[in-house]
Computed example of a mutant assay.
Amino acid sequence: MSQAIGKTALAYARVWHHVDVKDRILGRVATGIATTLMGKHKPIYDPASDCGDYVVVTNARHVHLTGRKEKQKLYRHHSGHPGGLKEIPLERMRRTRPEETIRRAVSGMLPKNRLRDGRLKRLLIFPDEEHPYAQNIVRRYDLEVETPAQ
């Protein structure tokens, strides 16, 4: 008799993770979040199946960046019309929509395929400490906080 769980519903059960990004570096946190959303931390990981977990991120307003990214980084998108290029500096994006900086960083680290949108829907980002998913959280990743280099 085999003891392996295999590709059953129990193996694909989605766990809720909580990440507190206060005083943590954006790129390092985003790689861990992307890995969890893809399901690479599970033994049943398959690149062609969506077996990742939910991730709840809090304190998005207080994430740190290294170097001069705060002043120099630009987020660009195009409307498709002539002259439709829009550029938003990171500094303004963090003031108006702080959760969008984390979403874009994680989105850039996920594979560019059909599973990407579904994985990003499981990423729930909140600018402050409060969130409505406290009873769902199974694992917390805010216990080992790395301090940024000043």
Rank of each mutant, 00 (worst) to 15 (best):
M1D: 13
M1F: 14
A4T: 13
K7W: 15
T8R: 07
L10D: 10
Y12I: 07
A13H: 13
R14N: 00
V15Q: 09
V15Y: 09
V19N: 04
V19R: 05
V21G: 03
V21N: 05
G27W: 06
I33P: 00
I33G: 02
A34Q: 06
A34I: 05
A34C: 01
A34F: 01
T36Q: 09
L37C: 01
M38G: 04
G39L: 04
H41R: 06
H41A: 08
H41K: 04
I44D: 05
Y45F: 15
Y45C: 06
Y45V: 02
P47N: 04
A48Y: 14
G52L: 03
Y54G: 01
Y54M: 07
V56W: 00
T58I: 10
V63K: 00
L65N: 08
G67R: 00
K69E: 15
K69I: 01
E70H: 03
K71E: 15
Q72I: 10
Q72W: 15
Q72Y: 15
R76P: 01
H78Q: 08
G80Q: 05
G80K: 04
H81E: 12
G84V: 01
K86Y: 14
E87A: 12
E87W: 08
P89V: 02
L90R: 05
R92H: 15
R92Y: 14
M93N: 06
M93C: 08
T96R: 11
R97F: 15
R97S: 12
P98A: 00
I102R: 06
S107P: 00
G108K: 03
G108V: 02
G108Y: 07
N113T: 01
R114P: 04
D117Y: 15
P127V: 05
D128L: 10
E129C: 04
H131C: 01
P132K: 05
P132T: 02
Q135N: 14
I137W: 03
I137Y: 03
I137C: 06
V138F: 14
V138A: 11
R139C: 12
R140C: 12
Y141N: 10
D142C: 09
V145I: 09
T147S: 11
Q150N: 10
Q150K: 14
Q150Y: 08
